[in-house]
């Protein structure tokens, strides 16, 4: 698109696939950023008309209101199973399973691992904010040791409830996944890396390469009881040391 004034260039516009409406997310929440990165990828790959987006149970359960594609709700933890059913019917469509930490690593652990192990040609976007946001700040399988939540008021005690689970490392033990990467959205540099990773996990599906997974460390200032500013710092200080950023798996298709 070009502005009539030749000297003025359009440097930014909202992604076409992102619906222009007020969202329900709290100030400082990372979901909005991730929605934007995802819709940018959908636009760039020109797949809006063949994308089916699966919304999980959690704060992003209403995400289908913000993304202008066919949408499907899934029961808590079951998104990879629903994605499997959709993909097996529509092999030519792009199925994106968007899940939180409780969804992906607690109630849906079996579905997560088995969909990955089968190498379902789907895209899984895992938003790890170390807490149950929607139900009001309970302990997640990814809550850090000594992290205080509504259900770990004295701090998470690993001797009692175990250490937080690292999704990328866990999935990296499986043969089938073709792409596994952990990113964060707490600063511009990390956001740009996340943007690339999201595009990659979606593109892999378009190219039929296989199961692709991206974990995104994301802020939940409300759940964490922090200001948005403090929340982005906490990702650097507390989360990244336990959840190191980087790529774990990158298989390219033979014919790409």
């Amino acid at each position: 698109m070009r502005n009539e004034d030749a000297d003025v260039k359009l440097v930014y516009s909202m992604p076409e696939s992102l619906v222009d409406r007020p969202n329900h997310y709290c100030p400082g929440c990372g979901h909005g950023i991730i929605h934007k990165l995802l819709t940018q990828a959908i636009d760039e790959l020109e797949i809006r008309e063949k994308t089916i987006f699966i919304a999980p149970v959690g704060c992003s359960v209403l995400a289908y209101f913000y993304i202008d594609v066919d949408g499907c709700e899934a029961a808590h933890g079951r998104a990879p199973a629903v994605a499997t059913g959709l993909k097996r019917v529509h092999k030519d469509k792009v199925i994106i399973s968007y899940q939180g930490d409780g969804d992906l690593l607690a109630i849906g652990t079996a579905e997560t691992i088995h969909a990955a192990n089968r190498g379902e040609n789907i895209t899984v976007i895992f938003v790890n904010n170390a807490i149950y946001g929607m139900t009001g700040g309970q302990m997640a399988p990814t809550s850090l040791a000594s992290q205080k939540t509504k259900t770990s008021p004295y701090g998470r005690d690993p001797a009692d409830v175990g250490q937080p689970i690292r999704a990328c490392e866990l999935l990296n033990t499986l043969e089938a996944p073709v792409f596994i990467e952990r990113c964060a959205v707490n600063n511009v540099k990390n956001i740009l890396k996340t943007r690339k990773a999201i595009k990659k996990v979606v593109q892999n599906q378009v190219l039929n390469i296989g199961y692709s997974f991206v974990e995104i460390l994301s802020m939940c200032p409300t759940g964490w009881g922090m200001t948005p500013q403090r929340a982005v710092e906490w990702i650097d200080e507390a989360m990244i040391p336990y959840y190191p950023l980087g790529n774990f798996r990158k298989k390219e298709s033979d014919h790409v």
């Binding site: 499907c72 629903v82 499997t84 529509h90």
Partner: peptide, 14 residues
Amino acid sequence: LAAINMVFGASAAG
């Protein structure tokens, strides 16, 4: 659980 949710997905797909 997974089976019935795969059914959900396939049914949603038509």
